[in-house]
Amino acid sequence: MGIQETQYDGGAPARTPEAGTGVVAIGLARSFGTVRAVEAMDFTARPGEVTALIGPNGSGKTTLLLMLSSLLAPDSGSISICGINPVDDPRAARARLGWMPDTLGVWEELTVHEILAMMGRLYGASKADAAARAHELLKLVKLDEFASRPARVLSRGQQQKLSLARALVNDPQVLLLDEPASGLDPGARIELRTLLRELAGRGRTVVVSSHVLAELDEMADRAVFVAAGRTVSEQRVDDAGTRGRRYAIEALDREALTDALEHAGIEFTLPAGTRRAAAVVLLGSEAEAAALLRQLVAAGVAVVAFAPAAGILEESYLRAVTTSSDPSTRPTPAEEPRP
């Protein structure tokens, strides 16, 4: 796996879906009173792909998704959902999009099936169609055994699944999910991933926001990084491509390890705040990694661990947020560069 990165320079997104498909947002800004929640965001999501929206808490992900989902009007900038401007024609946009909010709202006294059936009817489906669709969706998210229970008894994870099913009620072309995986157990996360991949496989545009990077690694085709209300970078997660991945190396003797790395002429950092004698190096390819390991072992360094330092998106995330101007979004632990 590798990453192909496009750093933003404020212009239009590098890859724009064909007119009339997916999600394209350019130059979005939105403030609430004096709080500038979204300052300058460009966002593109293509049909057939899962696009991850990644950023720290308070970076404006939810605000961006609210604008994309036609609920919030941007102060400036333009949005296109399947070629429709949601500010001009919100109803037409809504017919094509499904939105899962990060706050879970449920009608507590209604049963799980009723909620989905009612939602279906709010998209104009007939009573019978809506009921059938509700059954289908409950099977899809594995909530069918809870169909006739009141929504208030569901656990958080189950409510999350219900919320996801609700977002799918109108079989949307564009699916906007705000932190869909929070509260899900590992099994359900894998199911979510499979479902989203399949939806993308059927040509849907899927947008997933999160601040938990590990859960996006396997599911996203592309990632858009935001920090402090701005798009920081946009990148494609590819099977092949340019490399650049950090490896954490642990050894019994720290001195020996650093000496050997200096000798090999490889730049490294020693992450502060860990007890371990570990060094982090940036390597261009897996072949380079194998070569370095061989070299270290040959040099007599007692290597106990040699592995990628973080998930592929975490890599880019850290790079993205450290280069952004806002100091509050800098990652911790801080890294102290060494020669």
């Binding site: 037409a92 998209y123 104009g124 899809l140 594995k142 109108n170 479902l195 399949e198």
Partner: peptide
């Protein structure tokens, strides 16, 4: 999870967009 259960109605593909657009809900 399997999406095979999300069967599409036959008429869905062709005019999917139009079918659910604005005026569909009285």
């Amino acid at each position: 999870m399997s999406t095979s259960t999300t069967t599409r109605r036959p008429d869905d593909e062709g005019r999917g967009g139009e079918r659910r657009s604005g005026s569909a809900l009285g």
